[in-house]
Design a protein around this nucleic acid. Structure first.
Length: 231
DNA sequence: AACCTACGCAACCGCAATCTA
DNA sequence: CTAGATTGCGGTTGCGTAGGT
């Protein structure tokens, strides 16, 4: 990777490379708290940190950011990763935007270690199967707890309303993108997810249920996730 | 106990997109 | 408008470590 440079050394431009020290982390964190993120190339000038802008940005985004979620990828997050990867392919930054607290690097690494070996068709089928199993389990749980069921219905209604608002905003913003989103939505409602709404749990077959899986944090809407900027 | 292998993670690189003078 | 600088993204690599033999 670094050729003969190895880790923790200086390259020809006198930039430090390799693992970050606690001291460097502290300098970068202080810099960002004072000046905000961005302007990464000015970090070395202002802090004396011998790291180039790219290295600083990467360290902040992937490790130092305060809103990062530590710990293992949850089964819910795993499902979302699989579904979104089936839709978008290796658009890691897009997928990461749909998983608050997770970085594109983290998701990329997770994908490589967990799913890379399986064939695409199999992995999508697997994701669907798990999703449907979970749907069924959730429905059973809801039948046992009627009051919770009502709450979930309300939540889904809220989600649909939020999605509608987001759709309208997105439409005004970017018609082309919305066409794409709509086609994806149709795909999922139709052949793509044959059992998606078969039990009536999501009457409109929307993305709402996907974001309703337990501890998945609130999202503005699934459309927001789908509407992530494309390069 | 020593060695091997696979996995998880952090960090680098090259390239493309975007910004700015 | 354009060229150079900066930022962001995806692919890849290397290290540390846990688990198996």
């Amino acid at each position: 990777m670094d050729g003969q440079l190895g880790w923790g050394t200086l390259d020809n431009d006198e930039w430090r490379k390799g693992p970050w020290t606690a001291q460097e982390d502290k300098l970068l964190t202080e810099h960002v708290s004072l000046h905000g993120d961005g302007k990464w190339n000015s970090v070395s000038k202002l802090t004396g940190l011998r790291r180039n802008g790219k290295s600083c940005r990467l360290r902040w985004v992937n490790y130092l950011r305060p809103d990062l979620k530590r710990g293992n990828i949850t089964p819910q997050e795993e499902i979302i990763i699989q579904e979104l990867h089936a839709l978008w392919g290796n658009r890691w930054s897009n997928i990461a935007r749909s998983l608050p607290g997770r970085t594109d690097n983290e998701i990329k690494n997770y994908w490589r270690t967990h799913f890379k070996k399986s064939k695409p068709s199999k992995k999508v089928e697997k994701a669907r199967a798990r999703f449907l199993i979970r749907q069924r389990q959730e429905k059973q749980g809801q039948e046992e707890q009627q009051h919770l069921h009502q709450g979930a219905q309300q939540q889904q209604a809220d989600m649909r309303a939020a999605m509608k608002r987001a759709e309208e905003a997105a439409l005004a913003e970017d018609m082309e993108e919305m066409t794409y989103v709509y086609s994806v939505s149709c795909m999922l409602q139709g052949g793509g997810f044959s059992g998606y709404s078969s039990d009536g749990s999501t009457g409109d077959g929307s993305w709402g249920s996907l974001w309703n899986l337990g501890d998945v944090p609130d999202r503005p809407s699934a459309v927001t996730a789908l509407h992530g900027e494309r390069r």
